[in-house]
């Protein structure tokens, strides 16, 4: 499928055409037509998966997150591997347990380190390297602005259309909202990232860039600047799947962690400093 690189009307039309071609291709493969009834079922099913992911991740907003960043990543990775229904049941059961843990104030962490967000490229199953580096360096990952994070589950397909054409358009429009770095300009992504950082009370952002993913690599500077405008510092990590650089990355992550801790103290002292100036 051809993914456009801009979000103008002409690009939306191209994308709807790609969805139509995809529909023809899968119908050709199976010999089964996309019917109104089956599409309504699949829209509800995939939305259920997104809602389950949203429900699990929402608990990370809490002061004491009942699930770690590493485990939240594992859930997102499993969403791409498991049978959809089995995944929904597992994620809904997990959300139930997290609610109980939240009520009892059980944290997934042993120490309350700085709250950070991961931004950028996906970490498919088998790769939790940057998450591991960040959390084993004393930080808590409370949000994932990535394709194995909020980019995968944030937007739902509108369930209100009742005619087949409207339903297919609703599917196309949902996927067109994805704020991948392949789009330019990509103000949507900056706005979404800033909102997510605010909602999850993030103190710093770790840009996790898979080597040679030029789109996210180039865009990370602009995102860093946009986040800096709201006082959120960034650490950019460009790496591959090898384990050779883990210790070096840990040194950088630990330094960033110290910086965030110092920043929190400075922020706590800020009102006094401001008073001093005024006096």
């Amino acid at each position: 499928m051809e993914v456009p690189q801009k979000k103008n009307q002409v690009d939306a039309d191209l994308w709807r055409g790609e969805i139509a071609a995809f529909r023809d291709a899968v119908e050709g493969l199976s010999g089964a037509k996309v019917t109104k009834e089956r599409l309504a079922d699949s829209i509800r099913l995939v939305n259920r998966k997104r809602r389950a992911l949203g429900a699990v991740n929402a608990f990370r907003r809490l002061e004491e997150p009942p699930i770690s960043g590493l485990d939240a990543l594992l859930v997102s990775q499993a969403a791409l591997n498991m049978d959809v229904k089995a995944f929904c049941e597992a994620a809904e059961a997990l959300a139930g347990e997290l609610e109980d843990r939240a009520r009892r104030g059980i944290s997934a962490y042993e120490a309350p380190g700085p709250r950070v967000m991961i931004a950028g490229t996906p970490s498919p199953m088998g790769n939790a390297k940057v998450h591991y580096v960040v959390e084993s360096s004393g930080m808590r990952i409370v949000a994932d602005e990535s394709c194995t994070g909020v980019r995968y589950y944030r937007d739902l397909v509108d369930e209100s259309p009742s005619d087949l054409g409207g339903m297919v358009r609703a599917v196309a429009d949902r996927y067109f909202k994805i704020d991948c770095a392949c789009f330019s300009p990509n103000k949507e992504r900056f706005d979404n990232a800033a909102a997510l950082a605010k909602e999850y009370r993030v103190q710093g952002v770790v840009h996790n860039i898979l080597q040679f993913c030029h789109g996210f690599n180039v865009e990370s500077k602009a995102l860093e600047n946009a986040l800096a405008a709201s006082g959120i510092p960034s650490l950019k990590i460009v790496t591959d799947y090898s384990e050779e650089d883990i210790e070096q990355l840990k040194v950088r992550a630990e330094t960033f962690c110290e910086l965030l801790k110092a920043g929190r103290q400075a922020a706590g002292a800020a009102p006094q400093a401001a008073q001093g100036k005024a006096g």
């Binding site: 499928m1 993914v3 969805i19 995809f22 529909r23 899968v26 119908e27 493969l29 199976s30 089964a32 037509k33 996309v34 019917t35 089956r38 599409l39 079922d41 699949s42 829209i43 099913l45 995939v46 990775q77 791409l80 591997n81 959809v84 996906p122 970490s123 498919p124 199953m125 088998g126 790769n127 394709c147 980019r151 995968y152 397909v157 297919v168 599917v171 196309a172 996927y175 994805i178 991948c180 799947y241």
Partner: peptide, 21 residues
């Protein structure tokens, strides 16, 4: 994450993400 699972499933085709980690 651009492949519309909904359309594939409605045509009785199972989409299997292949991105390796």
């Amino acid at each position: 994450i651009y492949v519309p699972d909904e359309i594939a499933l409605a045509a009785k085709v199972l989409p299997i993400p292949l991105c390796g980690g």
